[in-house]
């Protein structure tokens, strides 16, 4: 076993320190060391998006990011998306639209969708389908996922309008 590295980072708004081997992926650190198991492993080589998390303002497949790369970063995982106020509108719309079946892909889709709507608050269906093409879902055929994301965009925009 190689010597462990000390890493200081922020996860879901909390300052976190951990030790990890240089070869461990961020996904392994999250799941096995920090027990944040919301990010899932579907392929471990960057092809399915089940492990999607936000690192700064980038969406990353945490299975192909090293744990040590989290040093000094701000990480957001599915566990950080609902707040003490309740579910995020994207989560709520996934429920209302039945946008999940087995649910294993859902954390990845929700994290990716959140990043999309932060960058593009009024995406077209084409935009949503293009953006989410990095996340595989084998159960739903994506139809209800796309509907949920479009509807969440609407809900978020209404929220913004109400607050203005």
């Amino acid at each position: 076993m190689s010597k462990k590295t000390h890493v200081q980072t922020e996860i879901n708004g909390e300052g976190i320190e951990f030790l990890c081997e240089p070869r461990q992926s961020l996904l392994e650190v999250l799941r096995d060391e920090l027990h944040l198991t919301g990010a899932k492993e579907g392929c471990n080589n960057g092809n399915c998006g089940a492990c999607t998390v936000l690192m700064g303002d980038r969406i990353v497949n945490s299975c192909i990011v090293l744990g040590v790369e989290a040093e000094g970063e701000k990480i957001e995982t599915i566990e950080g998306i609902a707040t003490s106020e309740g579910l995020h509108p994207i989560q709520q719309k996934f429920l209302e639209h039945a946008a999940l079946q087995c649910g294993i892909c859902t954390p990845g889709f929700i994290v990716s969708s959140k990043a999309l709507l932060e960058q593009n608050p009024t995406p077209s269906e084409e935009d949503v389908r293009f953006w989410l093409a990095g996340n595989l879902c084998r159960c739903t055929g994506y139809h209800k996922i796309v509907e949920a994301v479009m509807d969440a965009a609407k809900a978020l925009n209404t929220e913004v309008a109400d607050n203005a």
Binding site: L36, A82, L87, L95, A98
Partner: peptide
């Protein structure tokens, strides 16, 4: 079309799948 009972666990990452056992 009610909201499924296991829905909240599955949209928050709390649902425990086999690989989440430790």
């Amino acid at each position: 079309r009610p909201i499924r009972h296991d829905g909240i666990d599955k949209v928050t990452g709390r649902a425990a799948y086999g690989a989440d056992i430790h």
